[in-house]
Write a protein that binds this DNA or RNA. Structure first.
Lengths: 250, 250
DNA sequence: AAGAACAATGCAAATGTATGCAAAGTTTTT
DNA sequence: AAAAACTTTGCATACATTTGCATTGTTCTT
């Protein structure tokens, strides 16, 4: 087995398991403990992972690849959700959309005839719109975060000051009726707050598995939303806590 | 068996297996180990694969650009060119790179261990660098031009004012000894001029088919370049007009 | 603080790499 | 068509990398 091949396998495994143990890995790949350990050291030098006592943990910029394939199950949910969202778009609107699978998916599904201006900080989203000749794209520059494939930082913030959009489609990691909308990355939560300021209405599109989840950084309270779109029926039992809050849910 | 035929088979096999072991391959093709090894070296020089101890592995290879690839003929030239350019990069440099296939290819080929800051206005280039954990990316925001997958406009210009880079790798449509470097899009030519201002040295990487070509908008004179890198030998006859101008050519 | 688990180091064997060289094969020139 | 010039190929040699193991040092657990 080639060293590179082995290291590729290690990264793949790390990508799914998020952590690995030298002994297990050695048996799994049928090479000595030492080789594994040396591979891990080499991979750490290249910055692909973090070595810890007894194994290694993901550092993974490559986890992007992992998160992008949420599997077929959730893409069906995304389809339902996306279809509902499409009704909101009208010609000549300006829309802010940030990163995340949901927004990416929605952007792809937009009608080719729609005439919009989309403001985004997500590279995959901008590229997805290559296929939409009538959609103008404004890209917010700044420090590029590979893990999420978005830009962040003060430069993005500065550019947002000059934007007045009709809608902001916010991607989040968690939506909780009491604890609000939250995400994992601090800087990103700040930019999202500013994106809210820059738009007349804020819409959150989220699939059911993010409901009642809370992450480290709160972007806003649930009541501050203007609209939430999920893959569920608005009358679904899982939404009852959210229905009480006075936010429109479709 | 012809060398070309054998190399074709090697690439085919690499394409399906993603990795190749010299010993196996030698038996499979029934030639000596050395021939295989020399083929691999040659293919690596052209940028088709990555040689490793005991074999070779596929490199990601223009996967993102898809439609933009100019076909196999020019990618061989790109490989040669890219290889020369790699020598310029050193840790802790800040590099401006704009769009175009050549820059994209070079970015992909950068060593995974290089510690750089890359400033760009090209979305595919930024995404290509997802695989390089030690390279920081600053994305210049602005109006997104789908056709070239870059941002342009005054916002890009404003952000460039704050950049002091070591090198600017300029992509162009045409290089002419008398008529200078030129491109098709007016706005883009302005941004390129500003990128030159923002870097200590400007380097132009170009394959031979762009030599002696002129397009609508001149970015600068040929003499204003600090370095030109082509796929040709510096002594090549096709470069004689350029050699007279006092610009270093490699 | 002792024992267990893990990490680092040096070493030797195995494997892989670079280089020069001569023979065989190709292409170009005459 | 023969000779000359050049390329490709396989082999022998010396050199370099990778690997597993033994030994010694370090960190964690109880």
């Amino acid at each position: 087995m080639l060293k590179e091949e082995r290291q590729r396998l290690i990264l793949d495994k790390l990508n799914t398991d998020k952590k690995i143990n030298f002994v297990e890995l050695g048996k799994f790949l049928d090479v000595s403990y030492d080789s594994i350990r040396r591979d891990i050291i080499e991979l750490e030098d290249k910055g692909f992972l973090k070595k810890v006592h007894g194994g290694a943990v993901a550092n993974s910029y490559l986890s992007v690849l992992g998160t992008k394939t949420n599997g077929a199950s959730s893409s069906e949910e995304l389809g339902v959700l996306s279809k509902k969202a499409q009704k909101l778009f009208e010609n000549r609107q300006t829309i802010i959309m940030d990163g995340g699978t949901t927004n990416f998916f929605m952007a792809e599904q937009l009608a080719k005839t729609l005439e919009l201006t989309i403001v985004t900080n997500s590279t995959p989203l901008a590229m997805a719109l290559n296929e939409h000749p009538r959609i103008d794209v404004i890209f917010l520059g700044g420090t590029y975060f590979k893990r999420y494939q978005i830009t962040l930082g003060s430069e993005v913030s500065r550019q947002l000051e000059h934007i007045n959009a009709d809608y902001y489609f916010m991607g989040v990691n968690g939506v909780h009726a009491q604890k609000g909308l939250s995400i994992r990355h601090y800087e990103e939560s700040l930019i999202k707050q500013q994106m809210m300021q820059a738009a007349k209405k804020t819409v959150c599109c989220t699939i059911e598995e993010k409901l009642n989840v809370q992450e480290a950084h709160r972007v806003c309270n649930f009541q501050q939303l203007d609209l939430m779109i999920t893959n569920l029926k608005p009358t679904d039992f899982a939404l009852k806590d959210f229905q009480k809050q006075g936010v429109e849910i479709i």
